[in-house]
Amino acid sequence: MLIDVEYKAAIELLMKEKIATKPTFIINAISSESVEAVLRSVAMPKIKIGDRSGIKIKYVVEKVKDEEVKGEVSQLELMLQKSVDSKDKIIIAKDGDTINIDFLGKVDGIKFEGGESKGFDLKLGSKSFIDGFESQVEGMKIGEEKNIKVIFPEQYPEKKLANKEAIFTVKLNAIKEIINLEGDELKEKLKSFGFNSKEEIVLRIKKVIADKKIKEADDKYFREYIDAIIALKDTKITLPEEILSQEIEDEFKRIEAQILQQGMNMKDYFKMLGMSADEFKKNTLKESSIKRVSDGLIYSQLIEEFKIKATEKDFTAEYERIAKDSKSNIEEVKKQVNMSSAESNILYKKLINLIK
């Protein structure tokens, strides 16, 4: 019991310091009267950020394009319709048809988030999917399964997928005849979304797209700003081997969990890649881990340098924004949104506004 008390006290003392690795408890000696132990961790490395006064980066927010709104409105229209089996017994999909599909997308043989769905309704020609996807579905017959090859655009928001080739396995379940909802049925459907008219939803769509473009502009500016800091001659970042090793191992475990979740074992995965686990860590994970840790250290130092804090007023405004955007009750938002996540968003936005 005494050991437990002393251990907790040591942990509390250590956590007051700026540490970069998880504490390790090492027992040096044990006797009938005492236990000699050491609680060890690696201190957060001190970095030197060079003179940033010469950094000039253009902050650009792309305009909302009509075709982007049109694509989203097409999806909206699908939700304000009901489908019935086609009276014409259409068996081949063509441009303009609304179809129901199952699809599973993979990049380098691995599933990715958002790349799988069953019973998905899609209007061919709506350009809701990556270029080339819908045109390859055209001509498919009901019940047919087909592999479709596409390439994610260079400016794709999820950077891990940008410029990557993906293969989607698509099954055409049905070709549907769509009937627009009218009268009370339409009003009830709109009400379930929290809106009174289709026009309100269109305005909401435009705002969501505009907000997304601001977020993309913020992220792009931040990445370029951090890269510019790292490129400065007088910026000095030295990463202790323990920190880098822990980051590589943490990333490796995340990838391993993802691979296992997809039903593949690591042995087969590395065989497919043509390298060992150690080679994968060294050749694939090391460089990205160095970049990720360096970026994090610079970010933390900038937050400290600018003395950025999240106030109670900031939290309230963040919760109110989320509640308004999601048409939710603010108390429900507080229950669902992790406080640390809200704080991260607040600090990030404040930093962007200060450096741009």
Rank of each mutant, 00 (worst) to 15 (best):
46 K>G: 13
43 A>R: 06
280 F>G: 07
187 K>P: 05
243 I>Q: 06
19 I>K: 01
101 I>G: 00
172 L>S: 13
77 E>N: 07
53 S>I: 01
241 E>M: 06
226 I>Y: 08
196 N>F: 01
322 I>W: 01
157 P>R: 02
246 Q>E: 15
182 E>W: 02
231 A>T: 15
353 N>C: 07
242 E>F: 05
43 A>M: 05
96 G>K: 03
161 L>W: 00
59 Y>I: 05
260 L>Q: 08
309 K>V: 12
330 I>M: 02
208 V>D: 14
179 I>P: 00
197 S>Q: 08
169 T>K: 13
217 A>R: 00
313 K>Y: 11
299 Y>G: 10
114 G>A: 08
308 I>E: 03
107 V>H: 03
206 K>W: 05
337 V>C: 03
225 Y>T: 04
332 E>S: 15
241 E>G: 07
215 K>Q: 12
258 Q>V: 07
307 K>G: 11
111 K>Y: 10
284 T>Y: 12
51 D>V: 04
280 F>S: 01
105 G>L: 03
181 L>K: 03
6 E>G: 14
31 S>W: 01
301 Q>F: 01
9 A>D: 14
177 E>R: 00
273 L>H: 03
334 K>E: 13
104 L>Q: 07
128 S>F: 13
52 R>K: 13
315 F>H: 07
129 F>A: 10
302 L>T: 04
235 T>W: 00
115 G>V: 12
108 D>H: 04
212 K>R: 15
46 K>N: 13
315 F>K: 09
212 K>L: 12
310 A>V: 00
321 R>Y: 07
306 F>A: 08
67 E>D: 15
115 G>Y: 05
351 L>H: 12
338 N>T: 10
73 V>E: 06
38 V>L: 12
312 E>I: 07
110 I>Y: 09
153 P>C: 03
119 G>R: 05
56 K>S: 13
281 K>I: 00
10 A>G: 15
200 E>Y: 01
17 E>S: 13
54 G>N: 03
54 G>P: 03
131 D>A: 12
125 G>W: 02
189 K>I: 03
143 G>D: 07
97 D>T: 02
308 I>N: 08
333 V>N: 11
37 A>V: 01
328 S>R: 12
342 A>I: 06
326 S>Y: 14
340 S>Y: 06
279 E>V: 02
118 K>H: 07
123 K>N: 00
37 A>W: 02
227 D>H: 09
348 Y>A: 11
243 I>M: 04
144 E>G: 10
78 L>F: 02
171 K>M: 06
352 I>R: 00
44 M>P: 09
54 G>E: 04
131 D>Q: 14
13 L>A: 14
268 D>A: 15
297 L>Q: 05
129 F>Y: 11
95 D>W: 09
68 E>C: 12
354 L>R: 07
42 V>K: 03
3 I>Q: 15
320 E>D: 12
304 E>F: 04
159 K>Q: 08
331 E>R: 13
8 K>A: 14
